[in-house]
Design a protein around this nucleic acid. Structure first.
Lengths: 146, 146
DNA sequence: CGTATGTCAGCTGTACTGACATGT
DNA sequence: CACATGTCAGTACAGCTGACATAC
C-alpha cells in the first residue's frame, strides 16, 4: 500500500488526468455536426466494413454498457442509418449493419473532417508522434482492463 | 484543407477517444468519495490559494458558461465547501472562497483520484511504457491548445 | 443606455443501474 | 439452471440556451 511510486508513474498519472479532461471537453465541444450526435457517429464508424455486429459487441468496443449502446443504436435506426436482422445461428442476437445512407454518412463525416481530433492529429503532428500516441493508448487500455 | 486523413490519424483519434472514455469512467469510480461530483471537485481545486474568485471568473477558467458554473458553485455552497461574500468594490460580484472543510476536500480528492492511476502505472507498466505515455500526453496537450 | 454578473428554468447528450423477457 | 442478449424505465451528471433581475 505504501510502496514508493516511481517519478514517471506519478508524472504520467497527473499528465494523463489533465489531458483527458481537456481533450474530452474539446472533443465534445467540436462534436456538433448538426444531425447526429458524436456517440452515434462513433458507433456508426465502427460498423463500416462489417457483416453485422451486435449491440453488445459494439458496447464492448466502445467501452460502455450494452444498455447505453441500445439507445445509441436505436437513434441510428430511427435515422435510417443502420438496419437490424436476426442472427440465424443465435436467436438472441440482432445483427446491425450500415444502410446505404449510413455508409454515405460515414464517408461524409470522414471527408468533411468532422472528427476534430483526427484533423488535428493530421495537420499538427508528425507520423512518429501519431505512432507514439497509438502506442501510449495501447498501454493505457491495458490499465483499464481488469 | 481537404487533404485526406492518414490511417494513423484516424486510428489514433479513435483510440484516444475510446481510451479517455474508459479512463474517465474508471477515475470517476476510483475517486468516488460519495459526496461531490468531478466538476465540483475541479472547480473546488481551482479556488485553492485564491482570495476570492467570481463564478464568471471560474466559468471562463473552465471554459463553460457562467450559468453552468452557477449550479456547480451552488452545490459546493450547499456542501459547505465554499463561502461567498460580496465584493465591496463591485456590488454585482460575489467572491467565492474555500472553507476549511473545502480545503480538506481538495487534498482528499486529489489523493483519491490520482492514486488509482499512478499505482497501476507503477505495477503494470515498464519504465519505457511510462515514458511512451508521457511523450504521448505532451503531443496531445499541444493539440488542445489553440 | 449598453454591458457584466448572477440566478432560475428547461433542455440535450451521455451513460449509468435495475428489472425484466427471451434464447442458448 | 446459469449465462448472454436485448429492451425499457428511471436516474445522474455536465453542459447548453433563454429569460430575467440587478449593478456598473
Amino acid at each position: 500500500m505504501s510502496e514508493p511510486l516511481s517519478p514517471s508513474a506519478v508524472a504520467a498519472s497527473r499528465q494523463v488526468r489533465a489531458v483527458i479532461r481537456r481533450l474530452r471537453r474539446r472533443i465534445l465541444q467540436a462534436g456538433d455536426t448538426g444531425d447526429i450526435t458524436l456517440s452515434q457517429a462513433t458507433a456508426l464508424a465502427r460498423l463500416e466494413g462489417s457483416d453485422g455486429r451486435t449491440t453488445s459487441d459494439l458496447a464492448t468496443a466502445e467501452g460502455v454498457r450494452h444498455q447505453s449502446m441500445t439507445s445509441t443504436v436505436g437513434a441510428l435506426l430511427e435515422h435510417g442509418l443502420v438496419e437490424r436482422r436476426p442472427d440465424p445461428a443465435d436467436g438472441r442476437r440482432l445483427l446491425i449493419t450500415l444502410t446505404a445512407t449510413g455508409q454515405e454518412k460515414v464517408d461524409e463525416s470522414r471527408q468533411a473532417r468532422s472528427e476534430w481530433l483526427a484533423a488535428r492529429l493530421q495537420t499538427r503532428c508528425t507520423e512518429g508522434e501519431r505512432q507514439t500516441v497509438l502506442a501510449a493508448m495501447a498501454v493505457l487500455e491495458q490499465l483499464v482492463d481488469d
